[in-house]
Design a protein around this nucleic acid. Sequence first.
RNA 1: GCCGAGGUGGCGGAAUGGCAGACGCGAUGGUCUCAAAAACCAUUGCCCGUAAGGGUGUGCGGGUUCGACUCCCGCCCUCGGCACCA
Length: 947
Amino acid sequence: MSRKRSATKTASAKTTAAPARVYAERYDPKQIEPKWQARWEADGLYRATIDPSRPKYYALTMLPYPSGDLHIGHWYAMTPSDARARWLRMRGFNVMFPIGFDAFGLPAENAAIQRGIHPAEWTYANIANMRGQLRSMGATWDWEREAVSSDPEYYRWTQWIFSQLFKHGLAYKKMSAVDWCPSCNTTLAREQVVGDARVCERCKTPVIKKNLEQWFFRITNYAEELLDFSGIDWPEPVRLAQTNWIGRSEGAAVTFVSEREDPIEVFTTRPDTLWGATFMVLAPEHPLVDKLTTPERRAEVQAYVAASTRQTDIQREATDKEKTGVFIGAYALNPVNGERIPIWIADYVLMTYGTGAIMAVPAHDERDFAFALKFGLPILPVIDRPDQSTKSFAPSGTMHPGFAEALRGAGIPFDERQGSLYLTIPPEKVERYVELARNFVRPDSWNEVVGTQWLFIFSDGIQRWDSLAAERYILARCHALEPDVRDKRTLMEMLWAVEFYRDVLYHHEYGAMVHSGEFSGTPGAEARQKVAAWLEARGCGRATVTYRLRDWLISRQRYWGAPIPIVYCPTHGQVAVPDGQLPVTLPMDVAWKPTGESPLKLHPTWAQTTCPICGQPATRDTDTMDTFMCSSWYHLRYLSPHYTEGPFDPAEYDYWMPVDTYTGGAEHATMHLIYTRFFHKALRDMGVTRGPEPMLQLRNQGQILGPDGQRMSKSRGNVIDPDDQVNAYGADTVRAYLLFGYEWSEGGPWSTENIQGVVRWLNRVWTIAQPAADQAPSSSESDTPGEARLLRRATHQAIQKVSADFENFQFNTIVSTLMELTNTLYRHRAVLEGSPAWAEAVTTLLKLMAPITPHIAEELWARRGLPYSLHQQAWPEFDPAVAAEDLITLVVQVNGKVRDRVQVPAGVGDAEAKAAALASDGARRFMHGQPPRTIVYVPGRLVNIVV
RNA sequence: GCCGAGGUGGCGGAAUGGCAGACGCGAUGGUCUCAAAAACCAUUGCCCGUAAGGGUGUGCGGGUUCGACUCCCGCCCUCGGCACCA
């Protein structure tokens, strides 16, 4: 520390004494940025072509939607990936960094409806505008690889991929109730419906349900493989999000049979609870509902089915968690014990998950428990409590006098309140308690034990609550003995009325099976597998796996998308348009109506065609494809955007794929990134792509907010326009600020103040890095080997730090390191300017800046007479010997508190370090003369003396 | 409710379990200027102290450790996502 201070003083003294160097020309990005952009473009500096002699690197950033104006968020996403691409290029990689536009989609149609502009016109005008804005960044994009998903030469191959999936049985059509936005007039994907109110993601209109014939992709065929992330370096939160989205559940399919012998298959994750199934619940839409409903229940059932369908229509508030349902009059037989159990329907059972039917085990499933309690259905515990918690409640007057004394004598703890006893019984005392209760219970009453045991103790004997028959018997006796419980329909309802019991009545843990016939006593760890195997042997069930992931619905009743390349022939049904006839192009002459059907359906002639097989008149599918399809393979189209023999040129694929680094927003963790992986794997199975995964490394950036800390939006008026910023400060300043001001993966608010720091930094670099040809080497240079050494050390430490930070996406500390190097240059300027160490430091600074601020770095490089182009220079290597410190500062702690610092040689040994620490003033002062108990030495860092 | 991310000066943010607050903004004082801007130099977590120095400090409460922003347990708050998934 003191060394640095003295250096500072020396330098500042000389700075004031030295003649002022005046460069009339100020740093003016407007002069230099367009100049270099044009030069790089003309020289094709960033063309990426196959070169087997160099290692390739495919750097990819999520492609933008051409909404019209580039947003500062685009810069925030693209600047770091561009900087990193530039760094990799300087390190000798042959880097491909492509750009394009995800150009199909709803906003173009909304603009068409609102403003009468054709979606194509709107889209392509936006793209033209955005190209210009993107170029102002000075990024390394290879524009010859640009791909636009709405170009026929692009969507021809989107359609081709659809056909391939169709031919391989991965695309199929089914009638399906879909979410429909009445404002956008389009089908919405499940994930495009947002919020409690279930509104359209884009226009916030409440969605309704509509039944339509829809195309689906069998992404579920790949569910298992999509759960495997081995070999790819993706952030843990993304892998988790995908894993949860896919939602694998292991369990069993079990076939129940109605009394009229209709098989009803259910899926359960808990086959070990089968003996506790006391009723069944079907989804209201379940196909058996109509058949099984008895005539006297039909009216009520039909009303409920209608109501639950309407419920989704009218957006019933989701906060209403009260369970609803109706009994359909039918019974089923539990295959494990032959119990006759009622069949209900309820909207908490979803037709879209599992089999649309469940066995209800109210004792061990929260929803079933609430439902059973509400409707008076029996609840029978069949899994022991792992916590062994056992309770009993003896209300005043139910036991003979002396019970409390007897309990005390037996060492059984209890609380007594108003003559009633509340017992939490230790597991080893349960048997003793039952014995006592048996002796003390009055003949006109009873006593229960609940929790890990379920016993009803009457004066004439103990009844185990272990079956539905026992439930009926015990309940009848209780009703007979106690008028107050006659309104209780089940034992559980009766017990639930006792507040004290509630925490031991229900649980969903794994535990030993009880009340389950021959399986009673089976430990929780093996119960599921044993029961599943037994079911399979008996032919009424099997172990199975269910996923939350559903097949991907891709039909959209929209115009501005790729038409689905299917023709409907009266004879041949669904026929794929032959590859040679692709693309099926969009008609340009369409009518725009704010309401109604898809424009393709309304077009007078477009849908009319002939069957590719027989030539008879046939009709085209009038739906277009989900735009997620376009973005699921654009990384492949970038390989060869104008290739006509296939979706991409195989030679380009072999050289460039897979994508080495993919960057983008974390909001795409599930949809886009799962679809892309699915496409890659499905195409791989067709022999189109190769390898297990399309993208090896994924990194997410955060989101840039308005200066007010809120999400940027036009309505808030807090949108930062990158063009304004470039006008005010220049692209290099905006780039450097975006890297410097934030932890990249976090994001944060735009700051009009903090950017000043970057403005100053670049001005300082501009001043210090000017060529010093007109300056004689400083007269004192010869006697300053020490200062030269310090500057060289700082230079090489900066190389080391910046290189490591690029590797790890730590962009903010790259800039701070460069600022520090700049500050160091200023400190040594008076003494070293013009010396070899100075030249090394300045040229190194420019090289390290090149990826971040490419224009100013190139300009200063050229002014120093160095060969064009800076961006074709090799990334500097650091010399460990030069970077090494020769003196280090050891922190001296006494009992963990910093008490002093000592300077020691860098290679100091253990003993010397400890000795130096013990000898320090601070240590001696705080040891108060006591001998050290232990001394901890952390090499090169600190000594902690414990006394 | 569940899942995920996060909580460090006035602000943005740094810190392989080892000097908390690098770098920058802002602020304060100064140099230069007729003046301002720019530039340059210095100070800047909080508290006590004229100072030397000391105490305290990373959302809250515990724990592990010679040593915790960092690891463990339990809470609180903010943001994002999913919402009856059997």
